[in-house]
Design a protein around this nucleic acid. Structure first.
Lengths: 352, 352
DNA sequence: CTTGTTTGCACAATCGATGGTGCAAGAACT
DNA sequence: AGTTCTTGCACCATCGATTGTGCAAACAAG
């Protein structure tokens, strides 16, 4: 309110007020003043002026000069999902602890959109880019490479720079095995009673499917091809697939491996349309963790990917001098039904 | 790969290549060339050069000159939650359709953090700021005001600029009434059997509580004070409150009004610790919508706030010439148990 | 052939911060 | 007193794009 309407103070304003030159003011305020042999008393005076006039540096100007911006980007497929939003939450905490500013943007799993978004971020001179779950990581890589921007892949691997991803094969195995074992106390599953729904032809889905098929063959002795239904990621496509199966068989498979919580939403939509069914014998394994899903009226076994671990690793790797384009696998965790795990929110204090 | 390592092309590079002046190049590439009477053929030539050299404007430079950045900010409490992440998703779509770049940042419901974050965003010369769910909207307002930044409140109202918020009173009423009616077919609720948990002393919580108490008094004839338990937003505090109640009464209230999905997670944590209980008679009303929560093994009635409506309204209002500091109420929607609604994700195409 | 007009563009200042270089005044030393 | 350091800071170019202004050349009018 004090100086409302006035524009923000600049080093030139402070320069006039203090009687020093702009470069002196700049040096004082960005910490390089000792190197420039500015007197302590001068520095102190300028600092106090900056304080009373609420000076904050114009980052566009600084960024222009230094060709850095203090922005670190995270490119997501979508926001609206527990997995990716906890990615955003964790990423943000890391970035801020480095004193930089996070900029999180989604690109809808669309390769063109991904490149365009990366270009936009680059035009803001972001300092680093974390590419998470990109459909075409190598496409984004080219854009970054051309701009000389440090970047790294998360969740879906590329071939040109390091990638930090979940161990989807192991996760797929764990989850499949857990589903199968869940039935062993009662009536064991037949091979044609365990289906996989969702995902598409991306690295994560392929690995999970590979794990699924391996374990299924090992434990159930067979894995008919029709049990694999990669219906994409849209909830409605998954719903239609469940609908079609139900239409044909009059029921759902007893065991379901659902590729992501987004696909799981497709299952919910199917269920909403069949209120009479009680799905008593159903066991779902979902490759994602959501606390509410974990408490559904049928057993839901989930995989929690180690978001904190992945982000931490990614920051480690991106700092390395010359990172090699290798893949860092992060182990996910199996979550038994009716489990409410803590998450990044628990790190926040709740001021009352 | 083509010009890997080289830095990005500037208008000066193109100026040399084309034989025109930098100002001509600039005019051509930012669309003001007609006004400057640049020949069509010159423009065409420069455009083709820009194309082959993959020119993209340096936004920091542009922003410095024009004191705009093309960035529009959204300040959230947290990312990791369906309500706020769908806010982010919707906001992003709106911003991009205006040809600008969204920057979504969270501030942990901490007033100091909120102001600091706003200041950081301002230092990047963002063009507008949407303040969502801020603990201290007027504090953020001051920071914005001092910088001459257009801003608006969402979800929690301030007193200095327009606010677009859910009609929490009506929502609270609807939800409370739905809970009570849910019992009327069987054994009606007693006043001391309907509790409200979660939230704190913010506008939204107060309004919801007001609605809760009004309806409870109307329909049940009483509302003992101890039935209101504003435990804050942290899941664990809510859990402790449920734990304490259970300790004291040996059971949960039959009717629960839970103030947010985050608090609901506290209920899940409680339940995870009591696997023997079956919570058969429980009905939960939750002031937030989450598709998985809607299918839990007990009836969960939810409120879906109209995120799309709020964001749309907020964009309308912020464009107005001199917006008055009034409150725009957006009606939320009651969601019956076992309902899987579509969301912003359904707008995405799923490329296979 | 001279005097406007229009066309098409170049020049240069500017946004705010940074950092290399230079230089005066004082201190230290011979 | 004269020379050499050191201290303490000012000056100025620079980052890349925008924009007000000026001015030749081409053209039209008289």
């Amino acid at each position: 309110m004090a100086n409302s309407g006035k524009k923000k103070a600049t080093i030139y304003d402070l320069s006039v007020l203090s009687g020093s030159s702009p470069s002196t003011v700049s040096a004082v305020l960005n910490g390089t003043w000792q190197k420039r042999r500015i007197k302590e008393s001068t520095a102190e005076f300028i600092r106090s002026l900056a304080e009373t006039h609420q000076y904050t540096a114009n980052r566009q100007a600084r960024g222009l000069r230094s060709s850095r911006s203090g922005l670190i980007g995270l490119l997501l497929p979508i926001h609206d999902n527990r997995y990716f939003s906890s990615m955003a939450q964790t990423f943000e905490a890391h970035v801020r602890s480095k004193g930089q500013c996070p900029i999180v943007v989604s690109a809808s799993r669309d390769p063109k959109e991904e490149r365009k978004t990366a270009e936009t971020l680059i035009s803001y001179s972001i300092d680093e880019l974390f590419i998470c779950g990109a459909t075409d990581p190598d496409g984004v890589h080219e854009v970054c490479e051309a701009a000389g921007l440090k970047h790294i892949n998360i969740d879906l691997p590329g071939t040109k720079v390091p990638s930090v991803i979940s161990d989807n094969y192991e996760g797929g195995r764990m989850l499949t095995e857990a589903i199968i074992r869940h039935f062993q106390a009662t009536r064991p599953l037949e091979p044609h009673e365990l289906y996989l729904f969702g995902g598409r032809n991306d690295h994560a889905s392929r690995e999970r499917i590979r794990g699924f098929r391996a374990v299924k063959n090992e434990l159930l002795g067979a894995d008919p091809d029709e049990c694999i239904q990669p219906t994409g990621y849209a909830p409605n496509n998954a719903r239609l697939a469940f609908e079609a199966f139900y239409e044909k068989h009059g029921k759902l498979p007893r065991g379901l491996f659902v590729n992501s919580s987004i696909n799981f939403e497709g299952l919910l939509r199917f269920m909403a349309g069949h209120p009479h069914e009680n799905f008593a014998d159903l066991v779902v394994g979902c490759y994602d963790y959501d606390p509410f899903a974990s408490f559904l009226p049928f057993p839901v076994i989930m995989i929690r990917q180690d978001v904190e671990g992945m982000i931490t690793k990614a920051f480690d790797v991106i700092e390395e001098a010359r990172p090699q384009p290798c893949i860092h696998l992060i182990q996910p965790e199996l979550v038994q039904p009716r489990t409410a795990l803590t998450g990044p929110l628990d790190a926040l204090k709740d001021i009352e």
